[in-house]
Design a protein around this nucleic acid. Structure first.
Lengths: 160, 160
DNA sequence: GAAACTTGCTTGTATATGCAACTATATCAC
DNA sequence: GTGATATAGTTGCATATACAAGCAAGTTTC
């Protein structure tokens, strides 16, 4: 075992900065989204993915991959969204084990109502703090990390 | 209310990329750390912060700020670390409401044992995927975001 | 210096989220 | 086709984490 190569100051700054910035952004955006539209950030992300999908529906397994959460986590998250009428479960006709999560009319409306304020907050706390070059460098850097990490749900980052 | 200015492709790529890369990194590193040393990533972070502090101790409130978690979350996290003997609680003599979390001998040993493998994994999944320029751009970008967001526990990012 | 307020931490409670086990269906091997 | 295996999703259980309320010790106000 060779001598450990510790992180130098720049590496540390980048690593801790990433963790800290993420925590701040998520806390801020979740709180604001909940206050402005009564939808949590995780729920919002479900709605966004469904709204972008063909026929506004995705298989549970595919949705879990895109959201980076466990299947069981998604089951429970969907329970909540179904209870509030924003999503429906529809059995997949080709594979009767499978279930589609389908965005409802109400879900689409709630999303449409929530989105402008949320996007404005993403701008405020994230996009507007960075130059165009920084955004580009950041996007490339994140793509490298994602490409290096396990099974990349292909559509995760390239989409829209 | 003006027309919503949606995120353009680059902005979206940066934003989603950040969320996705973070999720991947945390999942990967937590699993590996737990497997290699039986310490969870959140616990490891507590140990790191204490090890870097003067006299290997920090007030609960300060530690919670640095870790970006709630006071109650820290109380419970510390309960676990105290139970496993890696941290002690010591009443603050100047302010008897206050408590110091103090790294124990055992905690320092466990941290020292865990650190090399963990740092190697941070290199593997994060540092090594980026060029020096990317690391620098990332560190600066994250610093801008953190500076823009609420009360920055001053030491969070500049330290080490 | 006592009442009102603030601060530091913990505890009650609610919600979230993952792993492992389970059920149901599909696919493969022969 | 029947048994073995694999896959999709859900559920039991354990753990995590936050908010709000509570308690104890400082601080301020008068």
């Amino acid at each position: 075992m060779s001598e450990t190569r510790w992180l130098d100051p720049l590496e540390t700054r980048a690593w801790r900065g990433l963790m800290c910035a993420h925590a701040r952004l998520v806390a801020q955006l979740d709180a604001e989204l909940l206050a402005s539209s009564g939808i949590s950030l995780p729920d919002y992300e479900v709605l966004v993915h469904l709204s972008e999908a063909d026929s506004q529906r995705l298989r549970m397994s595919e949705l879990a991959l895109r959201l980076e959460i466990s299947p069981s986590g998604l089951t429970r998250r969907l329970d909540g969204l179904v209870a509030s009428g924003m999503v429906e479960r529809v059995q997949c006709p080709e594979d009767r084990r499978g279930t589609f999560a389908v965005l409802t009319e109400l879900g689409a409306e709630r999303l449409e109502a929530a989105a402008p304020a949320h996007v404005a907050q993403v701008r405020r706390w994230f996009v507007d703090r960075l130059t165009r070059d920084q955004l580009c460098a950041l996007a490339d850097a994140m793509a490298s990390i994602i490409a290096g990490s396990g099974a990349c749900s292909s559509s995760e980052v390239r989409a829209s």
